[in-house]
Design a protein around this nucleic acid. Structure first.
Lengths: 238, 238
DNA sequence: GCAAAAGTGTTCGCAATACACCCATGG
DNA sequence: CCATGGGTGTATTGCGAACACTTTTGC
């Protein structure tokens, strides 16, 4: 780290979060990804939609800031939170130099129903996005890429569902995120082989057909393919 | 992005880089990874060794700042440069709040010989590191993890070699980084199948045995497994 | 010709795919 | 009993690991 002193002009540090959830009609049909955005009230970019975020307070950690602003704007607690990338091109904001540390998060679908949504905070479907401020579209697409990539080698889909779920629901998440059809038989085997699912023994009644088994995610075997290391992966609301 | 105004106390933004190169005796024996560090002259952490870096100038991009400080401290140009992670725990620096955007880089082994090395800039072997300042050991270990992980699904080992190289040299890089023995036969096939190698037609004479073929990296087919997107992956010195 | 590395061929086992087939429930 | 999704069994394929084998040089 360099020496202090010689203050000079400095870039401002912001923390933003790309939040993913499933469309509320999770049980029925094919669910789709939804992202909450906030309407910018001031210049630059007033009127446009932007990622939730804020300036970084001096005494707050990056993860905490991401989780806090997520909670403040949506009223939700993330079930998964991870740093995405830091964007800092000199011209990404017209007026002043802003460097944004961006996180991405997943929230439980059963929480989405009681999420904040008003004229200034609105949830948009993945392929029905409004015009975004600054470079936020680029950021969002990068977050989508990361979500899709990570879903294929890590077990994070459960973070978009509730406490328990059927195999078909879990498959539905993968299909929605990856935008593909998956073979039910092979998907089941792959998931069972991963060792991250626990059969609750319960079955979901009320379906017009054979009642499916309900599974729970095994947090103990939640082997992060990531570093051993590093910050909080999951946290609660403040 | 939040509104300007309400300045208040702000964290300071630094950019640091973890630089990897092979030990100069690349041809012979088993090469090892080396990392240049700079000695801190001032408090906090005076006397200890730290990653090369500096405060981020207001008008300079993150990638440019990483490449520049790399060049200033080592005299080298990176053949590979990528953002690693942003570290920002409130207590990682004792005096003031510092957020560090950290990059990692690979440099050609044939450039290492003319690298700067004096009493304040010194290259350390991967498993002979001195005591590091701040959280730089944690950062370095994370960078090592990323290098090892990425080597297995991306073709970046060539960035540690010169313009042309033998199959054995390329394998030596993988073995040094991954710290494993690799089967020469299977390694060859895997590399040839990747389509990133071009046989120059030349052969390396002077070996005590059958002269091996010299290969070149095919920059055209350098498919980044990464985003389509995003900043410069390779750049020259300023 | 002999040692040693370069380079080729062959086999094995695993895991993902494709797809045929039985099971259980509501209507 | 039938339509439909839940759930199981099985053949095929592609790829990486293991390893036997041939080739080419310096000495």
């Amino acid at each position: 780290m360099p020496r202090p002193g010689e203050a000079g002009a400095q870039a401002r540090l912001a923390v933003s979060t790309v939040i993913f959830a499933l469309s509320p009609d999770a049980g029925a049909a094919a669910p789709s990804l939804r992202i909450p955005l906030v309407r910018r009230l001031r210049e630059p970019g007033a009127g446009r939609w932007a990622l939730p975020g804020g300036w970084l307070p001096v005494d707050e950690g990056l993860d905490e800031a991401a989780g806090r602003t997520l909670n403040e704007t949506t009223g939700l607690a993330p079930t998964y939170l991870e740093q995405l990338y830091t964007f800092g091109a000199p011209d990404r904001s017209p007026d002043e130099r802003v460097v944004s540390v961006v996180y991405w998060a997943l929230v439980h679908s059963d929480e989405v129903e009681r999420a904040v949504s008003d004229e200034n905070v609105c949830w948009f479907d993945e392929d029905d996005l409004p015009e975004l401020a600054f470079d936020h579209l680029e950021i969002l697409e990068y977050a989508l890429w990361r979500l899709r990539t990570k879903l294929q080698y890590s077990r994070i889909a459960h973070a978009l569902l509730g406490e328990t779920f059927t195999m078909a629901e879990l498959r539905g998440v993968h299909e929605a995120v990856l935008r593909t059809r998956l073979d039910p038989a092979n998907f089941r085997r792959t998931m069972e082989a991963s060792g991250t699912l626990v059969d609750t023994g319960q079955r979901l009644a009320g379906t017009p057909h054979r009642p499916p088994a309900l599974y729970r995610f095994d947090t103990a075997s939640a082997r992060g393919g990531d570093p051993i290391h590093h910050p909080t992966r999951t946290r609660n609301a403040s």
